[in-house]
Amino acid sequence: MPPEHWQGTLWLAADFAILHGAAGVTATHAHYAHQLMLSTGAPFTAELDGSVHTAQRLLVASLRPHAILTAPAPMLTIYAEPQRLPASALLAALDGMAPPGAHSPVSLDGLASALLAQPRQALPDPRLQRALEQVDALLSGKVSAAAVAEAAHLSLSQLERLFSAKLGLPVRQLVLWRRLRLAIRGILLGNTLTHAAHGAGFADAAHFSRTMRSLFGVRADRSLRQLTVKLID
């Protein structure tokens, strides 16, 4: 079985990431980010919503169950925050890039610039912005739903309805996703798994590892250490 880890370069921006290199197999999982997978070499095989696809390009929208079954060639994978970049923006950013099957190098600089140039979606309600800012301010410790609701000038029930209706996740799951993003960033920047987990508000490294496995289908200790990171302002 191919290894369960990623190898290559990860370009990390505030609301998207580009992974270029070898992709390991994954268990079935579903995460909040939109994901676009592209191979300019041999096709990869992935499962999406229970159906198997052998392709050189596959778009996986937010929260759709999927798994990588085989990935014989290096791949380009884009992840994007759905409240900022719609799935269509990932496809639009590839316009002008080397088409699948051309066997020509993908310009990561060009792709990063194209993604940065895509119009960002505004949050549909200013109360959401206040709520998310409060979530991020509290991530290193306990995130109190009451404190988030107070910052957004909402009741708890209103907060839950707003998150579910506009972001597609209940408050608790959105907090978990943002904790995971923060912990992954910490590890990629050189922190230990334990330090990164605690800094993102996880109870311990095991809790972070379980979350990584659930949302990305891979083990944190095997999947992140082989990556070279470039931060995009």
Rank of each mutant, 00 (worst) to 15 (best):
F16H: 13
A98N: 08
H207M: 14
A112R: 12
A165K: 09
L123W: 02
D109M: 10
L182Y: 06
L132H: 03
A89Y: 09
P86N: 11
L12R: 10
T228E: 12
L128T: 00
L167I: 08
R64I: 09
H66L: 04
S209A: 13
A183R: 07
R178G: 00
P74Q: 14
R219W: 07
R213V: 08
P86A: 08
A71D: 06
I187D: 03
A196W: 02
Q118F: 03
P126C: 09
T54C: 10
W177H: 15
E81Y: 14
L115N: 03
L227W: 01
P2C: 07
M37W: 08
P3Y: 10
R185W: 05
A23I: 12
A33T: 14
I232N: 08
G186D: 04
S51N: 12
T194C: 10
L188M: 04
L36T: 06
A146K: 13
P2F: 11
I68V: 14
R130G: 00
A22Q: 15
L116M: 15
R64D: 11
S113Y: 09
R172C: 10
L90N: 01
G217D: 11
L36M: 06
D15Y: 15
D221W: 12
L94N: 00
F208Q: 05
Q7R: 15
Q7L: 13
A197I: 09
A196C: 07
V25P: 01
R219M: 12
F202C: 02
S62H: 01
R57W: 04
M75A: 11
P119C: 04
A80E: 05
T211L: 09
A137W: 05
F163D: 03
R181W: 00
T77D: 06
A98K: 03
I187L: 07
Q56C: 01
H31P: 08
A117T: 06
H66R: 05
S107W: 07
P74C: 13
A89M: 09
A67K: 06
P82D: 02
P170M: 00
T228A: 11
T70Y: 01
Q134K: 11
L123H: 04
L215W: 11
S144V: 04
H153L: 13
